[in-house]
Amino acid sequence: MRDIRPWTYAALFGSLWGAVELSLGTVLSAARIPFAGLLMAAVGVLCLVTARRLYPAVGMSLLMGVVAAFLKVFSLGGFVIGPMTGILAEATVVELAMTATGSTAAGAITGGALALATAPLQQLLWVLVVVGGEGAAGWARVLSRVAALFGWRGSATLQLVLAFTGAAALAGAVAGAFSWRVAGRVTRRLRGGT
C-alpha cells in the first residue's frame, strides 16, 4: 500500500476493535458469558466492515486484524493465543470476502457469515491442539453418549458442530448486513460533518 491512509485507518479501527476486546471481551470471558466469542466476533465484523466501507483498500482488514491481535497481548488473564488467532482468522476471512466482492454489501454479509462461522471452528481447533486427537475423540464420544441419552442417534458431534456453525454463520450474515448499514450511516455522518 503506497498511500498512508490505509495504515492510519487500520491502526485506529484496529485499536478500537482491540480496545473492545480488552475491555468487554475480558469481562465477558471472565464472567463465562455464553456465546461471548460470537458477540466479540460480531463487534470485530462491525469494525472491519466500517473501516473497509470508509476506505476500501485491499489488505486493510488484514492489517486491522494484526493491530487488534497485537493489542490483545496486553489483555488480562494471560492465555491470549486462542483469541489472537481468532481475531486474525476473522480478519483474514473478511479481507478475502471484501476483496473478492470489491468491498460491497455482499462482501460484508459473506465476510460476516464466514467470520462468525470460524469462531466455533477455531475454538474446536484449539481444543484439538490442547487436548490432542485422543482427548478430542474422548470428548466426541461423551457428546455422542449424552446425545444418545436424549434419543439422538448417529454422529451427534458432527451434527452438533455443523448446526452450531450454521447458526453462527447465519448470525454472522445478519451482523455483516447490520455492519454495512451502520457503516453507511457513519459515512453519511462524516460527509455531513456532524
Binding site: W7, T8, A10, A11, L12, G14, S15, L63, F70, L71
Partner: peptide
C-alpha cells in the same frame, strides 16, 4: 501502525 494503535487507545 502498531505504535499509533497503542497511543490512540
Amino acid at each position: 501502525a502498531l505504535g499509533l494503535a497503542l497511543n490512540s487507545l
